[in-house]
Nucleic acid binder design. Structure first.
Lengths: 94, 94
DNA sequence: TTGTAAGGTTTAAAAAGTAAACTTTAATAA
DNA sequence: TTATTAAAGTTTACTTTTTAAACCTTACAA
């Protein structure tokens, strides 16, 4: 039995939801992600920022206040990290 | 895209290691688990207790101090929880 | 214009994770 | 014997992370 390390940034439910969504959608805005992931706005905001800082997603913010719009897109590094995470997880199951 | 909730007790790397190990070994003692999971004794002790309190493992403790021996075994509920967790995870990866 | 709601961000509090320090007993050396 | 060291765990205090309530800014409606 050999357990591969799990990327702690991806080993969080909300962040994983965001990444999984962006992996198949390739781009989604804040409101859509909020609805899809069932997250609160605050939590979503924080986790998006963490993924952005890690370089796993790219975020375009435009406007302020009500007129603002935030669009997220997964990066190459993000896709790779997600794949690696998935592979690591497999080492835990049979 | 529908994300199933991930059991928070299992969605922790060390606890998952413990459970995955016990799932295939069916019984392992503290020292063996410590070596296998590469955990510190303190962390292992805490996480074993949490899994025990949840009814996912059964723990037999005998003796005290150096002569003590702690053996863990997965329960039916633990096996089911692990399976459910695994299934839930699959909903995150296409 | 002013009230209300939408889109996000900041924050402070709660929860969880971690490992150093400790307790107890067994083995070993002097 | 009687220290001394080391093994097996547990407690604890600390840090990190998570979470959502409160907040800010702007747009729209009445």
């Amino acid at each position: 039995m050999e357990f591969k390390d799990l990327n702690p940034l991806l080993h969080n439910e909300l962040r994983l939801r965001i990444m999984a969504a962006l992996d198949s959608l390739d781009n989604a805005d804040f409101v859509y992600l909020k609805d899809l992931t069932k997250a609160t706005a605050g939590n979503l905001s924080v986790q998006i920022t963490k993924l952005e800082e890690a370089g796993y997603i790219k975020v375009s913010r435009s406007g302020e206040g009500r007129g603002s719009h935030t669009v997220c897109r997964i990066t190459k590094a993000g896709i790779k990290a997600l794949q690696d995470y998935q592979r690591a997880l497999l080492s835990y199951f049979s």
